[in-house]
Amino acid sequence: MERRWFANAPEQFCWSIWPDEEEAVLFHQGSGDTLMLNPLGEFLLKRLQLERQTPSELMRSAADYFEIDANGELADAVHLSLLTFRSLGLVISDSL
């Protein structure tokens, strides 16, 4: 069974976004980190702020949102993003 992922303390995510700039800035109060995120990263984290998702669910909603194919390349990108976010303490897995 796939693990489900969710944002670590969703209320501690602070976003600054400019309409004419592609990348968003995120400050996470718990970790104290400020990061710049590409559109995929921004989408995934905001999704996980709202609800718990498995990697396949995430990939499907990303495909819908960006209107792209849900192929292996996207799956890899989602997987890699999750690993990065996990190492930064931004997302945690369903460990219960």
Partner: peptide, 24 residues
Amino acid sequence: AKNSALLEIQENAFNTHILGKVGF
């Protein structure tokens, strides 16, 4: 660009971790 400026301001702030959301 505003986003990279914000990132650099955050990196250059001494107490961004203490002010948290208010600081950001």
